[in-house]
Computed example of a mutant assay.
Amino acid sequence: MSKIINVRLELDKIDKTKIVVGEKGKYLNIIVAERKETDQYGNTHTVYIQQTKEEREAKEEKVYMGSGKEFEFENDVKNLVPGSDDDDLPF
């Protein structure tokens, strides 16, 4: 069984000072955390901008950017066991 989390972000909430410039581009470090309870819209996760150590120690408020839902689905690929009836491979 596989899982994905579909997330919707509010881009207007991005603090431009949190954007990190690297060798290959610009990055924003975010956290995707599982909610204790599913909200009224069925969201199972919340997304916020990663805080620095100093911000965490100062107990600054997190900047929430959005939320998302976790989906589980069956894999389409069968796990083939050599010698099983499902094994139609020539070797």
Rank of each mutant, 00 (worst) to 15 (best):
V20W: 11
D87N: 08
K59W: 09
G42Y: 08
K53F: 13
L80D: 02
G42M: 07
E74I: 12
V47E: 02
L11N: 08
E74Y: 04
I31M: 09
E70T: 12
F71M: 13
Q40I: 14
I19V: 15
K24C: 00
Y41C: 04
G42W: 10
E54A: 15
V47R: 01
Y27A: 03
V47I: 15
R8G: 05
K59Q: 14
D15H: 02
K13E: 05
V63W: 00
V47C: 02
D15W: 02
I4T: 09
R35D: 01
V7K: 00
D76T: 14
N29A: 07
S67G: 14
V63M: 09
V21A: 10
S84H: 05
S2E: 03
F91Y: 12
Q40K: 15
I14V: 14
Q51P: 05
E57L: 15
K24M: 11
V47H: 00
E34T: 08
E74M: 12
G42P: 06
L80F: 09
N6H: 07
E74R: 10
H45E: 02
V20S: 06
K53Q: 13
D87Q: 07
G22E: 07
R8N: 13
D85P: 09
D12Q: 09
K69E: 09
N29K: 12
G68T: 07
S2A: 08
V63G: 00
Y48P: 03
Y41E: 10
K13V: 02
K36P: 04
V20D: 08
D88F: 13
L28T: 06
T44S: 13
K36R: 11
F91G: 11
Y64V: 15
L89M: 05
S67Q: 13
A58W: 02
E55D: 14
G25D: 09
N43V: 01
N79V: 13
R56G: 01
